[in-house]
Simulated assay, not measured.
Amino acid sequence: MITQDGPLIVTEDLCAQLVGRQQAFDAVEAVFGAMASGGARNFPVIREALGHADAIYGFKSGFDRERQVLGVKSGGYWPGNTDRGLTNHQSTVFLFDPDTGRLSALVGGNYLTAVRTAASSAVSIAHLARKDAKVLGMVGAGHQSTFQLRAAAEQRAFEKVVAWNPHPDMLPRLASVADEIGLEFESVSPQELGAQADVIITITSAFEPLLMKEWIKPGTHLACMGTDTKGKQEVDPALVSAASVFTDEVAQSVSIGEAQHAVGNGALTEEAITPIGAVINGVHPGRVSADQITLFDGTGVGLQDLAVASVAARLAEDSGLAQRIAL
């Protein structure tokens, strides 16, 4: 039943209509800063294999005290969804009134997960990549890759995209986006990608290193966005330990992020990893030399989801496009 005071229902289509790349960037950048200053915190992640459909399911939650955003994202990864014409990642965000605990909004999470993940790597590029970066490298060509490419392209004056994917037949999708935004595109080997790229985004579901330390040139910024589960891995641990490592949340970086392997073999300490919010807040200098290799370990935190979902809910309410229902 539709009501005047029940929770908002913000659909996937409405999220895509209302929340663009800039809104997502601003929301994610702000919440990273709040996390680093202590104004927002994530709660422990629950993430489990279902033992059905090869799916991974879980909950990410947190509270942003500065912006009064409280909630949880419920969802996960269903690898067989592609064959069904569905997105592999499926999720819904529940927002609650911090003063009463009442459900305030139910927000579709699929589009928002994609746009907030792209915003996260874009924030890292904005704060850590060299200003003169010209070549963007893309490792991975799945659903998320086009969001990554569009968001990254807005952060530097890139002239070219070089890309590699384990399944080359998926690369034309990236090529078409590069053409659309006016960038030269080249399909290359991983070694050549490392030789050319000034900024590299990895966005795969790999469980083994796809990029090795010796392939990466000095001054490169890497945004490693695919590793968010224990055992997953996209780059050589030696590359991680050789880089200046930044992350969304240190606790997740060392346990389920790209840094888990370098920390596990003793090559990197937890203390060597810097929250990117410290750079955003001006507490840490970030990149300090042109030759420095910087690496952002994007593990995906619940506060990112809540940040963009709260933007979607606010814009939906302001526009009058969302419905409220009685529970």
Score class of each variant (00 low, 15 high):
Gly33Val: 10
Ala195Pro: 00
Pro7Arg: 11
Asn42Met: 02
Thr3Trp: 11
Val235Asp: 07
Ser241Thr: 05
Glu154Trp: 11
Gly277Leu: 10
Ala312Asn: 07
Ala129Leu: 01
Glu48Gly: 09
Val250Leu: 02
Thr269Val: 10
Arg47Ser: 13
Gly20Phe: 07
Phe96Arg: 13
Asp99His: 15
Thr3His: 13
Ile293Glu: 05
Lys160Met: 08
Phe94Pro: 08
Asp179Ile: 12
Asp179Thr: 14
Ala133Gly: 06
Val199Pro: 00
Leu295Val: 11
Phe59Thr: 15
Gln191Ala: 15
Arg156Val: 10
Gln323Tyr: 05
Ala153Ile: 09
Cys15Pro: 01
Ile325Gly: 05
Pro209Ala: 08
Phe207Cys: 14
Leu210Ala: 01
Ala267His: 10
Arg130Ile: 00
Pro168Thr: 03
Ser124His: 01
Ser74Gln: 14
Gly226Ser: 01
Ile280Ser: 03
Leu70Ile: 09
Phe96Met: 14
Ala118Met: 09
Gln196Cys: 10
Asn265Met: 09
Val301Glu: 12
Asn281Val: 02
Gly266Ile: 02
Cys224Ala: 13
Asn265Gln: 15
Asp291Phe: 02
Ser74Gly: 15
Asp99Met: 14
Pro218His: 07
His221Asp: 06
Ile276Cys: 10
Pro209Lys: 01
Gly277His: 12
Thr269Asn: 07
Thr117Trp: 03
His284Trp: 00
Ile273Tyr: 03
Gly51Ser: 07
Leu222Glu: 04
Trp164Ser: 08
Gln148Cys: 10
Ala24Glu: 04
Ser187Pro: 10
Ile216Ala: 07
Gly194Phe: 06
Arg21Tyr: 11
Glu270His: 09
Ser289Gln: 08
Val235Leu: 07
Val235Tyr: 00
Glu159Cys: 09
Thr294Tyr: 03
Leu210Lys: 03
Asn281Asp: 06
His167Tyr: 13
Gly142Ser: 00
Ala312His: 09
Leu174Thr: 09
Ile125Cys: 04
Asn88Leu: 06
Met138Ala: 01
Met35Lys: 03
Ser289His: 08
Ala262Cys: 12
Asp297Lys: 07
Met225Ser: 05
Arg84His: 07
Ala30Phe: 03
Asn110Ser: 13
Ser120Ile: 08
Gln23Thr: 15
Thr92Arg: 14
Asp5Thr: 14
Gly71Asn: 01
Ala312Glu: 02
Pro209Asn: 04
Gly140Lys: 06
Ala243Thr: 11
Ile200Leu: 04
Gly226His: 03
Val107Ile: 12
Val288Asn: 11
Pro172Trp: 00
Phe59Lys: 14
Glu192Tyr: 02
Pro79Ile: 00
Pro285Leu: 07
Leu50Trp: 06
Arg130Lys: 13
Asp248Gln: 00
Ala36Arg: 01
Gly286Asp: 08
Pro166Leu: 13
Ala36Lys: 02
Ala206Thr: 00
Gln148His: 14
Ala322Tyr: 09
Thr87Ala: 15
